[in-house]
Amino acid sequence: MVDEVVLKNAMETAWMVYRAQHPEVDAHDSRRCLLERHLHSRSEARASDTEQLAGFGIAYLQRLSRDGC
Rank of each mutant, 00 (worst) to 15 (best):
M1V: 12
M1K: 08
M1W: 03
M1N: 14
D3S: 11
E4C: 01
K8S: 15
N9L: 09
N9D: 12
N9E: 12
A10S: 08
A10D: 06
M11P: 04
M11W: 06
E12C: 06
E12V: 08
T13K: 07
T13N: 04
A14L: 00
W15V: 08
V17F: 00
V17D: 08
R19T: 11
A20W: 06
P23L: 01
P23D: 10
E24T: 12
E24Q: 10
V25K: 06
D26M: 05
A27K: 09
A27M: 09
A27R: 10
D29M: 02
D29R: 03
R31S: 02
R32V: 09
R32F: 02
L34A: 09
L34H: 05
E36Y: 05
R37Y: 12
H38Y: 08
L39P: 02
L39A: 03
H40F: 07
H40E: 14
R42F: 06
R42M: 09
S43W: 01
S43V: 01
E44T: 13
E44Q: 14
A47P: 03
S48M: 13
D49G: 15
T50A: 14
Q52T: 15
Q52E: 14
L53A: 05
L53N: 04
L53Q: 07
A54Q: 03
F56H: 10
F56D: 15
G57V: 08
A59H: 00
Q62K: 15
R63G: 07
L64W: 04
R66G: 06
D67M: 03
G68F: 01
C69A: 07
